[in-house]
Amino acid sequence: MAEKQISPILKQVLELGPTLAFFLIYVRIKDETYSFAGTEYTGFIVAALVFVPILLIAMCLLWWLTGKLSRMQVFTAFMVIFFGGLTAWFNDERFFKMKTTIVYSFMAGLLGIGLLRGQSYLQYVMDEFLPMREEGWMIFTRRLTLMFALLAIANELIWRTQSTDVWVKLETFAFPAILFVFLWVQIVGLQKYLIDDPSAPKG
């Protein structure tokens, strides 16, 4: 199915809205305790469970409006559902916090496999939107692989050593901001590798 164009603002709301909703719900109920079927759950776990249907609804709307979901979006949704389920089943918030580490590690590992094969898997995903010579893609991929690995390590250190409040704030705002700034800096810094004519050779 061909991708349909929608308002960039609406697209951002659907992509980033669920995470912001999780943060707002958590802030509202973080000090509460809820009892279901004789088991008590913290506000964090309840917020994490509410986040799952919110994310799925947003993704369904995004697919309905655009006709397309990226593999990364599908993978992230699967991880949220899987670890959200583990969090509820074991009544242990650590599972939900580990999700971020695994997502970043997966991305670092996937890009790393491509690099070991002398390829940039990132190019396969973004080449249509960012025409660039192969040398530039390899540099970009190496740097992004390292960034994903560092974010995975940072998440592990933070959730294991800091409070839930600190982790939620960093997960909601700091990690996305760091990744956004990193990508922007890389795109600006790799301008010399961009191809003005996309039909020109990329080697």
Score class of each variant (00 low, 15 high):
residue 174 A to F: 13
residue 1 M to S: 12
residue 20 L to A: 05
residue 81 I to W: 08
residue 67 G to Q: 09
residue 102 I to P: 00
residue 189 G to A: 09
residue 42 T to G: 15
residue 166 V to D: 07
residue 162 Q to P: 01
residue 145 T to V: 11
residue 56 L to Y: 04
residue 88 A to R: 01
residue 120 S to I: 02
residue 16 L to H: 10
residue 85 G to S: 03
residue 5 Q to Y: 14
residue 144 L to D: 07
residue 95 F to G: 02
residue 45 I to E: 09
residue 58 A to T: 00
residue 116 L to H: 07
residue 103 V to M: 14
residue 133 R to I: 00
residue 18 P to M: 13
residue 128 E to H: 13
residue 74 V to A: 14
residue 80 V to N: 02
residue 105 S to L: 15
residue 37 A to R: 02
residue 61 L to D: 05
residue 143 R to S: 10
residue 140 F to T: 01
residue 152 A to H: 04
residue 109 G to K: 06
residue 6 I to P: 01
residue 158 I to A: 04
residue 90 F to C: 02
residue 4 K to V: 03
residue 130 L to S: 03
residue 70 S to Q: 12
residue 87 T to N: 04
residue 178 I to M: 14
residue 105 S to D: 08
residue 183 L to E: 06
residue 120 S to E: 10
residue 7 S to K: 09
residue 86 L to D: 07
residue 185 V to E: 11
residue 161 T to G: 05
residue 154 A to P: 00
residue 23 F to G: 03
residue 201 P to M: 09
residue 34 Y to W: 14
residue 19 T to V: 14
residue 35 S to K: 13
residue 160 R to P: 01
residue 189 G to D: 11
residue 137 W to H: 01
residue 81 I to Q: 13
residue 2 A to C: 07
residue 57 I to V: 15
residue 38 G to Y: 02
residue 172 T to G: 00
residue 30 K to L: 10
residue 92 D to I: 11
residue 199 S to K: 14
residue 70 S to W: 07
residue 15 E to K: 13
residue 1 M to C: 10
residue 150 L to G: 00
